[in-house]
Design a protein around this nucleic acid. Sequence first.
DNA 1: ATTGAAATATGTTCGTA
DNA 2: TACGAACATATTTCAAT
Lengths: 156, 156
Amino acid sequence: MRNTNKSVKIDGIDKKILRFLMEDARKPILEIARSIGISGAAIHQRLRKLESSGLLSGSKFVINPKVLGYTTMAYIGIFLDKAMSNPQAVKELEKIPEVLECHYTTGNWSILIKVLCKDNEHLMTVLNKKIQQIEGVSRTETFISLHQQIDRQISI
Amino acid sequence: MRNTNKSVKIDGIDKKILRFLMEDARKPILEIARSIGISGAAIHQRLRKLESSGLLSGSKFVINPKVLGYTTMAYIGIFLDKAMSNPQAVKELEKIPEVLECHYTTGNWSILIKVLCKDNEHLMTVLNKKIQQIEGVSRTETFISLHQQIDRQISI
DNA sequence: ATTGAAATATGTTCGTA
DNA sequence: TACGAACATATTTCAAT
């Protein structure tokens, strides 16, 4: 059973450990131990606690999509017909691999999604052949990200 | 010198390796080796090649901000005065820890940012006391993410 | 590109403070 | 909590194919 309440307290040592691992998930624990002057066993124990607190939700290898030719990122605001249920639309969006994020939002749209495509043509295909085809999608507004200037996690 | 051209070719074995590590960056290479039936040394070599190709841009520990009380995520579209240079605004946005992403976009706004706050009150403070204070920011449009339903990397 | 084996380094557990 | 020692695994290199 995983604890997910909000009363998790982390101290300065926890923060140091996390900052290292948020930068490089494969950084050896012993290396971290040496740089912050505490034993490897202690770090191991703290990491277990942080994991069971739910604060650590895993680790990821980050791949650079540009190297695979994916250079066009865009946000798309989607207007749904009143009749269309949000969960049903999300189920369809999940099937589209180019959709990386999907948010149910306040404001103009029902849904805001982030898509990653190879180029503008690819984006157009995704829009016309995939997203607009979803039942209940009435209109979309596309914002192409010409350049992502900040990309980071919460600062701790 | 890192190769960042787009002609990187990866085969099925590379994909299998990457899929494992994109899920769990700390998964032991030898474990992956055993599950796909190839030696650890071979995986090690492939990873080195993938790294030097620029496809692998690192690894990250993922932390769950909710556990620290950060429950309000929002996208904010920012209109900049014509006189205001984009890079200058970005420099100011970088100083705001709640800003996790910043995109220079086509469409209505000059900039689209993603912010993570503890609650609506915190979001309001960030908007009024930090973002609106930036010179050149004329107007903002906020979209609160009531629920993030998809969050993933490119599928390979 | 791949392998197995050797050398080095790390992860993990446990008894103790 | 933290430590160190002991043990189990993993990473890394290398000669050979």
